[in-house]
Design a protein around this nucleic acid. Structure first.
Length: 572
RNA sequence: GCUCCUGUAGCUCAAUGGUUAGAGCUGACCGCUCAUAACGGUUAGGUUGGGGGUUCGAGUCCCUCCAGGAGCACCA
């Protein structure tokens, strides 16, 4: 049985994610995971929270909590929201786990053994008032170039000039505002990515089927200017994974931690270890997913992420794995997404602009969001969320096309034949044509899903739903019932069976609605349909069903206006 | 500034260099009455951002201009 390893970019811990974050990684990853499971593949779908780094410390300080406690609480919150959106992770881990500590230190040790770690002395700004070193972006001052007084240490937002923190006039801490700063010498470890440049280049070249969005970013970093630069992988922070060489201390690195972007991708691997432990499994059980010398040779590994994550997944993380010279699995396919904008601007976590995961679930069930976000996923370019588009798309596709089909079929049958699949008649010409059409459309749908063409798959699924309404209109069982009830029975038998088929093939997009339909049809036959003729004959004459509650209520104009108003401002 | 991406119907998007550039939504008209005033059908709507070039043939390749977006490494 084919095995698919799927990871979604791991969301940062410092708050609740917005819909743009969701549609850029976790949601399409879940769609793919559910589909691959439904097709009979063995799937391991992993995600986690990314918990280290300065923003986590600052968010914890703002919440007046110790950072580890803050992370535990936010992890719980994010896990709950993920469950609310029906994200079917096999494990939702934490980059702060013991497993990740061990593995990150292990990789660092291997890289050092292989001569790929360099110790570099550099000057960093230390703030006495904050009791910490300040990363570039947490130092503010006056730009020497344009005089803008809120320039950051890495770049002036006003004149866009690249800066060094020591260039700033009257530098101050962006955290406390303190001007009691001092430039101190500090030693850091650098990963010699430049030594792996040719290997990475060849590896990227071998990925001819990757989207241009993905490979062009990698190529840019590989070839621009002096080529791929070495990367610092340690920081002067308290919160993080202590710098160690495997199990051993690292002389001169006392009190330092690994840089968050070094340990975060390793959590993809550590998460499998967490999963195994949580399931009461052995090391061999997760090695068979990650070690090509232990059974992972035939695993297909697919990553999902927003475009901002691409450099780390195409270069830094592969450099870590290649540099270890151990048989860890490299990614086979990267599916990257552009940004979803909100009503004319960007979604923004820091500014609280847009709709956030918790708010979304407060106003509508997960399936509404899943459908709209996935059928409008920003695959080829940035796309935009507006309340009008959301209302229009959801009402038309879910309520009118799918929901109403279920409603008209089940209610007609109840009133004419009772709440069971009617007997009599044989497959009509209209029915035969529908089966043939759906056979073709199903092939097209699965081809799009296999290729992870999310929008195209959604469009084809919608066409499959619409074909049901078209069939009913042509067959008109409400007319034939008066003169030829057997004929009407045969058509309705087909239509009722179609509901079950729709439930099965729509489940990756609409897990809750799918479950509701299967329950209404009183069946647990969920095998993926191989051919339509067989699939639409699964429920036999005499099989009972119930008319389901309204599957998708429409969004009214007043509701839409209320929400547009409620979410027009900034979240406090 | 440098690099890359995008620009197609009122809107959202399709079209391995190959018939007359296609779908959905919206609009108009017709039909149906089983159904969530839902459904089906017909139809309108385009100098493919502008200009040049390559080619038997260009939305697609090249040049240039215009407009929008993204990335530019220690930021997560």
């Amino acid at each position: 049985m084919p095995r698919i390893l799927i990871t979604s970019a791991i969301p940062y811990i410092n708050g609740i994610k917005h819909l743009g974050n969701l549609v850029g990684s976790q949601l399409p990853a879940d769609l793919f995971a559910r589909y691959m499971r439904a097709r009979g593949n063995e799937v391991l779908f992993l995600c986690a929270t990314d918990e280290h780094g300065t923003p986590a410390e600052l968010a914890a300080a703002k919440a007046d909590m110790p950072v580890d406690e803050y992370c535990t609480q936010m992890h719980r919150t994010q896990a709950k929201l993920a469950a609310g959106f029906r994200l079917s992770f096999d494990h939702f881990g934490r980059s702060s786990s013991a497993q990740n500590h061990r593995l990150t230190q292990y990789f660092a040790g291997k890289l050092a053994e292989n001569g790929l770690i360099e110790e570099v002395s550099e000057k960093q700004v230390y703030s006495h008032a904050d009791g910490r070193f300040l990363p570039d972006r947490y130092i503010e001052g006056t730009c020497p170039n344009c005089g803008y007084d809120k320039a950051r240490g890495d770049q002036c937002e006003n004149c866009t000039k690249q800066l060094d923190p020591t260039d700033l006039i009257d530098p101050r801490s962006a955290i406390s505002g303190s001007t009691d700063l001092e430039v101190r010498e500090t030693k850091h470890l650098y990963l010699r990515q430049s030594a792996l440049k040719d290997d990475l280049d060849a590896w990227i070249d071998s990925k001819a089927d990757w989207p241009i969005l993905t490979t062009s970013i990698a190529k840019k970093w590989l070839h621009d200017g002096d080529g791929l630069q070495d990367r610092g992988i340690t920081r002067d922070l308290n919160w993080g994974i202590p710098v160690k060489k495997g199990d051993e201390d690292w002389p001169g690195m006392e009190g330092k931690v690994f840089y968050v972007w070094f340990d975060a991708p390793i959590e993809y691997i550590a998460c499998a270890a967490e999963w195994a432990e949580a399931q009461g499994l052995e090391e061999a059980d997760w090695w068979r997913w990650w070690r090509t010398d232990s059974g992972a040779e035939d695993v297909r590994y697919v990553q999902f992420m927003g475009k901002d994550n691409v450099p780390f997944h195409t270069l830094s993380f592969p450099a870590t794995i290649m540099g270890s010279q151990e048989p860890w699995k490299l990614v086979d396919y990267i599916k990257s997404f552009n940004y979803l904008n909100y009503d004319g601007g960007q979604f923004s976590t820091s500014q609280g602009r847009g709709v956030f995961m918790d708010q979304a679930l407060e106003i509508l069930p997960a399936d509404y969001w899943r459908w709209w976000l996935l059928s409008n996923a920003p695959e080829t370019s940035d796309s935009e969320f507006t309340w009008e588009k959301f209302q229009g798309g959801v009402n038309k596709d879910l309520a009118d096309v799918l929901g109403n089909f279920v409603s008209r079929v089940t209610k007609f049958c109840r009133s004419k034949f009772g709440e069971e699949i009617p007997a009599g008649g044989t497959l009509t010409d209209e029915g035969q044509r529908l089966v043939e059409e759906l056979d073709q459309r199903l092939k097209s749908y699965t081809a799009h899903m296999d290729a992870i063409d999310v929008r195209k798959a959604a469009a084809e699924l919608r066409a499959i739903w619409a074909a049901g309404n078209e069939f009913l209109q042509g067959a008109a069982p409400w007319t034939s019932f008066k003169t030829d009830p057997d004929r009407a029975a045969a058509d309705i038998r087909l239509a009722l069976n179609l509901i079950r088929v729709y439930a099965v093939i729509s489940a990756p997009f609409l897990p809750d609605a799918s479950a509701t339909l299967l329950e209404a049809m009183r069946t647990d036959a969920t095998d993926w349909p191989e051919d339509m003729a067989t699939a639409v004959a699964i429920l036999p004459a005499g099989h009972g069903f119930v008319v389901p509650e309204t599957l998708f209520a429409k969004i009214g104009d007043e509701e839409r206006a209320d929400w547009a108003e409620r979410f027009s401002g900034i979240r406090s």
